[in-house]
Design a protein around this nucleic acid. Structure first.
Lengths: 158, 158
DNA sequence: GGGTTTTACTTCAAGCTTAAACATTATATA
DNA sequence: TATATAATGTTTAAGCTTGAAGTAAAACCC
């Protein structure tokens, strides 16, 4: 038993509470994510992985290497290969040679990609705002604070 | 602008706060879920979808119909078909005919399936407990309360 | 009863995801 | 310089996921 698990003096309920918390966190995350996927599909004929890659690229006009994208998104590099392939097929992204390193390539949004993503990002923000509409400033602040703390501890022991 | 979005008298920051909250919620959810997937694979040579289906079945000894499983897990029915097929191939679950309805089948865990899931569920609970270890009772309670509220509002406008 | 609609489930095509295996290029080291 | 090791990406096999289309059976309705 770790020191932190004895605050209440009763380990069993605390352990169950944590499990319940996880299930509720997962449920919220899935409910929101499913909405976003559905709207990206219906309104923009695209997918969340494509949106995520474009979002990363939009923040780096000079482009990103494949490995940088997979690091930022915490997905495998083989995964990014396929997504960038499809974005490229659709004329939304392109691979640029990296001078001095023939293994790597820099991925960038095309002009069309930038326009497309700007639209999607604006819609995305309003979707989130609508879904979290009923949380007041205190709720949002309280949750952000605790999630920051949780994420820090989760990343320590990655 | 909805009535709820004006509590602070400043819409712009609140909208950005909500977006930040979503990104942090998603991050926490993904960090935890990735750990669980990894451990299920490494320790038990199984996957999260299989674990989820077995978890639903474990709570219903009399069995569940395919459509009940997909409702509980919020996934498509075609998806459940494949997962139950694989569980069946491995001798962990089986389909039983439903008397009076030849379209449907009742899915149950086998004895082997029950034993296997019991082991996995026990490990799962300790993984969660370890990952959320640094949250104290107040944190857990505060987050559960807000997530309950959020989930209620999200399910209303599904 | 006969026809329509609904329900239960499976199949399919496309895309996402991973780990592992692979190819290629760059870097370090002897 | 030669060799070993690292890093960068792609490919592959297996599984998950969806929506749409399809099959079959049950329920409804006239």
């Amino acid at each position: 038993m770790t020191p932190q698990s004895v605050e209440t003096g009763a380990d069993e309920p605390m352990s169950k509470m944590r499990l319940r918390l996880w299930l509720k966190l997962l449920k919220a995350s899935n409910l929101i994510e499913d909405q976003i996927r559905r709207r990206l599909r219906e309104d923009f004929q695209t997918t969340l992985p494509r949106f995520d890659v474009m979002s990363a690229l939009a923040r780096s006009p000079e482009g990103l290497k494949m490995s940088q994208i997979s690091d930022m998104l915490r997905v495998s590099n083989g995964n990014v290969t396929g997504i960038v392939d499809r974005l490229t097929d659709e004329g939304l992204a392109l691979r640029v040679a990296v001078p001095g390193d023939r293994r790597a390539s820099q991925v960038r949004l095309t002009a069309k990609g930038k326009r497309t993503f700007a639209e999607q990002a604006a819609a995305h923000e309003t979707w989130i705002d609508d879904m979290l509409d009923r949380l007041d400033a205190d709720d949002v602040e309280g949750m952000i604070r605790r999630l920051d703390y949780l994420n820090d501890t989760l990343e320590e022991n990655d």
